[in-house]
Amino acid sequence: MGTCEHCGMMLIKKSELSYEKKENMKIAFYLQDGVEVLDFAGPMEVFAYAGFDVFTVSETKEPIVSQGILKIVPQYSIQNSPKADILAFFGGNSEAAFSDEVVKWIKAQQDIQYHFSVCTGAFALAKADILDDQTATTFHNALNRLETDFPKIQVVKSVRFVDNGKVISTAGISAGIDGALHVVAKIKGFNTARRIAYHMEYDKWIPQEGLLLSENPYKGYIDINYINDYTGIYEYTNGKSIQLYVDSKDSSLYARLDSQDYPLFYIERDVFTDLNEDTVKFMRDDKGIITDYKIGDSVSEYFKKLN
């Protein structure tokens, strides 16, 4: 694919970022007139890279305008929208956006595996009774309104997202990216979500900032008690050295080479993969101390740990 003429970064096809070869889930993005751009565009980027089948729906197929700037032509209306596995709703003009007809459509959807909201998109789920007896969050300026208007909802503040299991809500705007990465981690695994965050150059994701009320997709990854065993300086190719360190944001291992950081993805004890999906295997001595590593299953060259 070549390299970017501006920054020199290697260009790759979007399809190459669909790391997991699972059947693609279909996600309906409900977009209303006045929808916040980043509310939906951030999660759309995440889900597209993850290989999900994303399509847009609105009350009608008439063009809508996001933030008075971006004109959007919905692919479907609520009258002809195909079946989805995930329904997603976003903020912007939310007080007028979710009409009785839209709420009726939400309630009529069958076999939905997950409901997902960003910002004041939570009001769509609230009006459809989907958040009844659930815990949820929303945009900081709308938290009190959600709590007052829908007393059956346990509204929480100062979290990036809330995961009830099948219903995930996020705080406002950029928090939608965090919530979407979390959904990817739930469905396709933490390593896939980390790969996507790295390729998007989204270094603000801290999985622990979410409130998890269901199965934790990060368990066994960010709580490895021996992760610091791998840190240190190692030999690398062409006489270079490489530094391995643990980033506190996601409690995961990274390699620093030529002032650039690259994630390593935990598979099992002493076994990781790199961005090229090559195996990185660490060796220990009789005392359990790491001595060296090798890259690739068939490569016999070992690189020593220097300190």
Score class of each variant (00 low, 15 high):
residue 2 G to T: 05
residue 2 G to S: 11
residue 4 C to A: 08
residue 4 C to V: 12
residue 7 C to P: 14
residue 10 M to R: 11
residue 11 L to Y: 09
residue 11 L to C: 12
residue 11 L to G: 13
residue 16 E to W: 07
residue 21 K to N: 15
residue 22 K to F: 14
residue 23 E to V: 05
residue 25 M to L: 13
residue 27 I to S: 08
residue 34 G to Y: 02
residue 34 G to S: 09
residue 36 E to K: 04
residue 36 E to W: 01
residue 36 E to S: 06
residue 39 D to M: 06
residue 42 G to R: 07
residue 43 P to Q: 02
residue 45 E to F: 01
residue 48 A to L: 13
residue 49 Y to N: 14
residue 49 Y to P: 07
residue 52 F to E: 04
residue 52 F to I: 06
residue 54 V to G: 10
residue 56 T to C: 13
residue 56 T to V: 08
residue 57 V to H: 10
residue 58 S to R: 02
residue 60 T to K: 04
residue 61 K to E: 10
residue 62 E to C: 04
residue 63 P to H: 00
residue 65 V to W: 00
residue 69 I to C: 10
residue 69 I to M: 13
residue 72 I to L: 07
residue 72 I to Q: 03
residue 73 V to H: 00
residue 73 V to T: 14
residue 74 P to K: 03
residue 79 Q to L: 10
residue 81 S to H: 06
residue 82 P to M: 07
residue 83 K to N: 08
residue 83 K to W: 00
residue 83 K to P: 00
residue 86 I to E: 01
residue 89 F to H: 02
residue 90 F to A: 00
residue 91 G to R: 10
residue 94 S to M: 12
residue 94 S to W: 14
residue 97 A to K: 03
residue 99 S to Y: 07
residue 99 S to H: 05
residue 99 S to Q: 02
residue 103 V to Q: 02
residue 108 A to I: 00
residue 109 Q to R: 06
residue 112 I to H: 05
residue 113 Q to W: 03
residue 113 Q to E: 15
residue 115 H to G: 00
residue 118 V to G: 10
residue 126 A to S: 11
residue 128 A to T: 12
residue 132 D to T: 14
residue 136 A to F: 07
residue 136 A to T: 01
residue 138 T to D: 13
residue 139 F to M: 12
residue 141 N to D: 13
residue 144 N to S: 14
residue 150 F to E: 11
residue 152 K to N: 13
residue 152 K to A: 14
residue 153 I to W: 08
residue 155 V to H: 09
residue 158 S to H: 14
residue 158 S to V: 11
residue 158 S to L: 15
residue 159 V to Y: 04
residue 162 V to P: 13
residue 164 N to V: 03
residue 166 K to C: 09
residue 169 S to A: 03
residue 171 A to G: 15
residue 171 A to C: 12
residue 172 G to I: 09
residue 174 S to Y: 02
residue 176 G to P: 08
residue 177 I to Y: 03
residue 180 A to Q: 05
residue 182 H to N: 07
residue 182 H to M: 05
residue 184 V to W: 06
residue 184 V to A: 11
residue 184 V to F: 07
residue 186 K to V: 13
residue 187 I to C: 02
residue 189 G to A: 12
residue 196 I to D: 14
residue 197 A to T: 02
residue 199 H to L: 07
residue 201 E to C: 12
residue 202 Y to H: 09
residue 204 K to C: 09
residue 208 Q to I: 15
residue 208 Q to T: 15
residue 210 G to I: 02
residue 211 L to P: 15
residue 217 P to C: 03
residue 219 K to Y: 09
residue 224 I to T: 09
residue 228 N to G: 00
residue 231 T to G: 03
residue 235 E to I: 05
residue 235 E to S: 03
residue 237 T to P: 00
residue 238 N to T: 14
residue 238 N to C: 12
residue 247 D to Y: 11
residue 248 S to F: 09
residue 252 S to M: 02
residue 256 R to G: 14
residue 258 D to K: 03
residue 263 P to R: 01
residue 265 F to P: 05
residue 265 F to R: 01
residue 266 Y to P: 05
residue 270 D to H: 03
residue 273 T to R: 01
residue 275 L to F: 01
residue 277 E to I: 09
residue 278 D to H: 06
residue 278 D to M: 05
residue 279 T to P: 06
residue 281 K to Q: 10
residue 282 F to Q: 01
residue 282 F to H: 00
residue 288 G to D: 10
residue 293 Y to F: 14
residue 297 D to F: 07
